Amino acid sequence: QWKVGDKCSAIWSEDGCIYPATIASIDFKRETCVVVYTGYGNREEQNLSDLLSPICE
């Protein structure tokens, strides 16, 4: 189960590419979260089910 502060990978809606991110907040009722893309600072809402394991850098 994901928690705030977890590192993950998420698909950015603008280009469909996968980027490393950190979970900033979680809404368990809606099963969504807000991620912050590492190195970019962009925030975006994602479905918890769409999150991927962190990418090894």
Rank of each mutant, 00 (worst) to 15 (best):
Q1L: 07
Q1P: 10
Q1M: 13
Q1F: 11
W2A: 06
W2I: 13
W2G: 11
W2D: 15
W2T: 09
W2R: 00
W2H: 13
K3N: 12
K3P: 15
K3S: 11
K3L: 13
K3Q: 14
K3D: 14
V4M: 00
V4G: 12
V4S: 02
V4L: 00
V4F: 05
G5F: 07
G5A: 04
G5W: 09
G5L: 02
D6C: 12
D6R: 00
D6K: 00
D6I: 07
K7N: 10
K7Y: 10
K7R: 12
K7P: 09
K7H: 11
C8F: 00
C8K: 00
C8A: 00
C8P: 00
S9C: 15
S9I: 07
S9T: 09
A10Y: 06
A10I: 09
A10E: 06
A10C: 07
I11Q: 01
I11F: 04
W12H: 05
W12N: 11
W12A: 04
W12F: 11
W12V: 08
S13E: 07
S13I: 09
S13N: 04
S13V: 08
E14R: 15
E14Y: 15
E14A: 13
D15V: 03
G16A: 05
G16S: 04
G16F: 07
G16R: 01
G16W: 08
G16M: 06
G16C: 09
C17H: 15
C17W: 03
I18K: 01
I18M: 06
I18P: 08
I18Y: 14
I18S: 05
Y19Q: 03
Y19L: 06
Y19N: 04
Y19D: 04
P20C: 15
P20D: 12
P20F: 12
A21S: 02
A21E: 04
T22S: 06
T22M: 07
T22G: 02
I23T: 03
A24N: 06
A24Y: 14
A24T: 11
A24Q: 11
S25P: 02
S25I: 10
S25M: 07
S25C: 07
I26H: 05
I26T: 02
I26D: 08
D27N: 05
D27H: 01
D27F: 10
F28Y: 14
F28P: 12
F28D: 11
F28N: 09
K29D: 14
K29R: 12
K29M: 12
K29N: 13
K29I: 14
R30T: 12
R30P: 06
R30Q: 09
R30L: 10
R30M: 10
R30N: 12
E31S: 12
T32R: 03
T32E: 05
T32A: 01
T32M: 07
T32H: 03
C33A: 15
C33P: 00
C33E: 00
C33D: 00
V34R: 00
V34I: 14
V34F: 06
V34C: 02
V34N: 03
V34W: 10
V34H: 00
V35K: 00
V35T: 01
V35W: 04
V36E: 13
V36P: 01
V36Q: 12
Y37T: 03
Y37V: 05
Y37N: 02
T38C: 13
T38G: 03
T38M: 11
T38L: 12
T38V: 11
T38Q: 09
T38Y: 10
G39N: 10
G39R: 05
G39K: 08
G39P: 10
G39T: 09
Y40T: 15
Y40M: 15
G41S: 06
G41Y: 03
N42C: 11
N42F: 15
N42Y: 14
N42W: 15
R43V: 09
R43D: 07
R43A: 13
R43Q: 14
R43C: 13
R43F: 13
R43Y: 13
E44S: 04
E44A: 04
E44D: 08
E44R: 05
E44M: 06
E45V: 12
Q46K: 15
Q46A: 04
Q46D: 03
Q46T: 06
Q46G: 05
Q46V: 11
N47P: 09
N47M: 05
N47Q: 10
N47F: 13
N47G: 06
L48Y: 05
L48S: 00
L48K: 01
L48A: 02
L48G: 03
S49Y: 06
S49E: 10
S49L: 05
S49K: 13
D50R: 01
D50H: 07
D50E: 06
D50Q: 02
D50T: 02
L51S: 02
L51I: 09
L51K: 02
L52K: 06
L52D: 03
L52F: 12
L52V: 05
L52G: 02
S53T: 08
S53A: 14
S53E: 14
P54H: 08
I55L: 14
E57N: 11
E57Q: 11
E57I: 13
